[in-house]
């Protein structure tokens, strides 16, 4: 995995160049937003369970998915769904701290769509739940940090669809 610093260095090292002013500005803003990122991570880890609960209530509960015949019907499947949402939230938080989505690609999205398709897990419902997590998280951590987290929730969604 990379963070914003290593990804900048890797990009410029292969060209034997110093980072240009755009890249420097990005790094500077990244360092400046450090407090915000650390605080958001702390708030999310303290409220991870309730974020998932609220997001599921918002997006999946009482829909066809949880009804008999739906993909979240039976406790075992419900639990598997919750577990995956927990993974998404944790990895999105990692990516937000790093300022780089590569960890999502490596640890979450790589082969996930194929796995879900073979297991019959509906992508649409998953995307709905991740979008709900995005809203719930933004309510918790505030607009600015919420926007940053949103980038990585959206990254998961676009990687799935």
């Amino acid at each position: 995995m990379q963070d914003l610093i290593t990804s900048t260095i890797n990009t410029f090292d292969v060209r034997a160049q110093y980072p240009d002013s755009d890249a420097m500005n990005r790094l500077e803003n990244y360092f400046k937003s450090g407090d915000l990122r650390a605080k958001a991570s702390l708030a999310i880890s303290a409220n991870a369970k309730s974020i998932i609960t609220k997001a599921v209530a918002k997006s999946l509960m009482y829909t066809d998915i949880t009804a008999p015949g739906g993909n979240m019907y039976t406790c075992r499947r419900y639990a598997a769904c919750i577990r995956d949402l927990e993974y998404f939230l944790r990895y999105a938080t990692y990516a937000m701290l790093a300022g780089d989505p590569s960890i999502l690609e490596e640890r979450v999205l790589n082969g996930l769509r194929e796995t879900y398709n073979s297991l019959g897990v509906p992508i649409g419902g998953t995307v709905r739940a991740v979008q709900a997590m995005k809203e719930v998280t933004a309510d918790l951590v505030g607009t600015e940090a919420g926007k940053e987290m949103g980038v990585y929730f959206d990254y998961i969604c676009s990687g799935l669809s």
């Binding site: 995995m1 990379q2 963070d3 610093i5 290593t6 790094l27 500077e28 990244y30 360092f31 400046k32 937003s33 450090g34 407090d35 990122r37 650390a38 991570s41 702390l42 999310i44 880890s45 991870a48 944790r90 938080t93 990692y94 701290l97 790093a98 960890i103 640890r107």
Partner: peptide, 30 residues
Amino acid sequence: ITSSIKSADREARYLSLGELKAIANFYQGG
């Protein structure tokens, strides 16, 4: 940042307060 995330990920947990404090210092020194 990356090394803290990696060790948290190995244990499937969020970053601890101590780790986040160290990272926050790193951001500040950036």
